[in-house]
Structure formats: structure tokens, C-alpha cells
Amino acid sequence: MDLILFIVFALIAVVAAINVVVQRHPISSAVSLIAVMGSLAVLYLLLGAEFLAAAQVIVYAGAIMVLFVFVIMLLNAGGETKAGRSFVASLLGVPVLVALLILLTYFTARIYPRQTEVHFGGFRGGTAQAVGRALFTTYLLPFEITSILILIAIVGAIVLARKELE
């Protein structure tokens, strides 16, 4: 059961991720990216990260990607025009990518042989309670710093958007 779930959602994630890269129109890429995030949320659940799975859907798929789609719709820019690309890049691009992929997969499989097996319910420390407790005790300082970061981002976004009105 776990294996079937993993294979199904990993396949969806990989196919959608390829789609993100190859689609010519940004909105198709955005929709594919939402699919990647959704299937990753299911994999998080499989790994026992229930709070993170919900946060992934609410924050990533539900808020950040809506912003992306919103901006794409607002600009209503068409598909990407094929720009003149250097000869070396178009020749070496795909083979280098495939080589990188194979190397990465090889090393992860090599360093982590089948020592740990993942099954649903194998880790129960990912509840909202556990995450919240760690967040407000051990990791309180980083948490406060990220809140300041968010504040800076809000101010920055407003300043950038305001400039256009003048």
C-alpha cells in the first residue's frame, strides 16, 4: 500500500515537474507546479509530517501559487518566444542534465542503501503539537527572525507596488 502510494505520487510529481520545465506558457507551468506540490504533500503525509503536509497545501499551493497565477493573469503575457541560444548550451544542455540526474541518484542510492524503510505511521512526531512545541521552545529565535523577514517582505512588496501608482 505504501509502495503503491509512493510510486503513484512520485510519478505524478516527476511528470508534472518535467511539464513545469518544458511547457511554453507560464500558466501551464504554474498548474503543473501545483500538481507537484500536491503530490509532495501526500508524500509528506506518508513520512508522518501531517502538519507540514497541510502547510504545504495551504501556504505553497494555496497562497504562493495563487500569487503566481494572479501575476501571470494580470500581465496576461503570451507564451515564451524562442530566444537565440548559444550553440554549446543547446548541444550540451540535455545530456548534462541527464548525467547530473544519474550521478545524483547513484550517490543517494549508494550512500543510503536499503537500511531504513518508510512505512506510514513509522514516525508520529510530526503533529501540529510537536511542531508547535519545538517552534516555540528550541527554535524560538529563528521563528522570531522569520517573522521580521516576513515584515520586511511585506513592506518591500508594498513599496515596489506603490511606485507604479505615482
Binding site: A54, V57, V66, V69, I72
Partner: peptide, 24 residues
């Protein structure tokens, strides 16, 4: 689910896409 509230929030936030994509 022991995070039912989060689930409902997550699903309802995904519901926006139906309307947005229809409009686009």
C-alpha cells in the same frame, strides 16, 4: 483526521483554482 481543521482550510484554499483557471 487529527488535523481536520487544517485539512478543510487546505482544501478550501485549493478551491480558488477552479474559479481562477476558469476565468483565465
Amino acid at each position: 483526521l487529527n488535523f481536520g481543521v487544517l485539512f478543510v482550510l487546505a482544501v478550501s484554499s485549493m478551491g480558488i483554482y477552479g474559479i481562477v483557471l476558469a476565468g483565465w
